[in-house]
Simulated scan of single mutants.
Amino acid sequence: MSDTYTVLHDPQGLIEAELSPDRAPHEALVTAVLAWKDPDLEPRDYAQIALQLTGHARAIAADVRRHAAALPKSDGRGALAEVVLREADGRLSVPLEGTARCAQNRARLVRALYTRLDRLTEPLPATR
């Protein structure tokens, strides 16, 4: 096994735009990670889980960004999405660690992004 890696530079998020993330396995991973009480994994295992969740969080954030951009300026859901996206950008800029806490923080981020995505994609109630 090699200790080298490749850094991917994709400032426009084009790769993420082409991803079709399967939500169910990632939600199951989030649920499992958040249920940890006193896990006893190797640091590299925590790092791998956090990396998986980070990639998925970036893909969901790209979806949230696209949906928010398509909303009219008068729709408050877009402003809320921007707040969540700023928070996500800040949290994703923190380097990964091989700890349970890091993996759980990434799991919380994925959950928050899915919540925002769901709110952006649900139809607004009809007004009278």
Rank of each mutant, 00 (worst) to 15 (best):
D63N: 06
R119V: 03
D40S: 14
R111P: 00
R23E: 14
Q52Y: 03
G55T: 07
V94F: 04
S20N: 10
A100Q: 12
E18M: 15
T121F: 03
R128V: 08
L51F: 06
R91S: 02
G13M: 01
K73F: 08
D22N: 12
E18D: 14
G98N: 04
V7L: 11
V33D: 13
W36H: 12
V110P: 03
A112S: 12
R23T: 14
R91V: 01
L96Y: 02
R65N: 04
V64W: 08
R66S: 07
P125I: 09
D45F: 07
S74N: 11
A88R: 01
A32D: 13
H56Y: 15
A24K: 09
D63R: 15
R101N: 07
E27R: 14
D89G: 13
P11A: 02
L8K: 01
E42H: 10
R77S: 08
N105E: 13
I60F: 09
R119M: 07
R91Y: 05
T31L: 14
G90K: 02
H26V: 11
R128D: 09
L120Q: 05
L14T: 09
D40I: 03
I60H: 05
L92A: 03
G76M: 09
R116H: 00
A59P: 00
A24L: 12
M1S: 10
Q12C: 05
T127R: 14
A59Q: 01
L29C: 03
K37A: 15
S93P: 00
L34R: 15
S74G: 02
D40A: 11
E42Q: 07
H67Y: 10
T127M: 12
T31R: 11
Y46Q: 01
A112E: 09
L34T: 10
A107M: 14
G98Y: 03
R119G: 10
S93V: 00
A88W: 04
H9G: 00
D10N: 03
G76A: 09
A100L: 05
L41Y: 10
P125H: 13
W36G: 11
A69H: 05
S20D: 15
D63F: 05
G13Y: 04
L80E: 13
S93E: 10
K73G: 01
V30I: 12
V64S: 02
I60Q: 03
R91Q: 12
R91P: 00
H26P: 00
W36A: 08
S2G: 13
E27G: 02
D63W: 02
T99S: 15
R23F: 05
Y46S: 01
R106Q: 14
A32S: 15
D40M: 01
V64R: 03
R23N: 00
A24T: 10
A35G: 14
H56G: 01
P123A: 06
P123F: 01
G76I: 05
R111M: 10
R101Q: 15
R66V: 10
L41G: 00
P125C: 11
H56F: 13
Y5L: 12
D118L: 04
R77N: 07
A81R: 02
P95K: 08
W36S: 11
E42T: 04
L80H: 05
L96I: 15
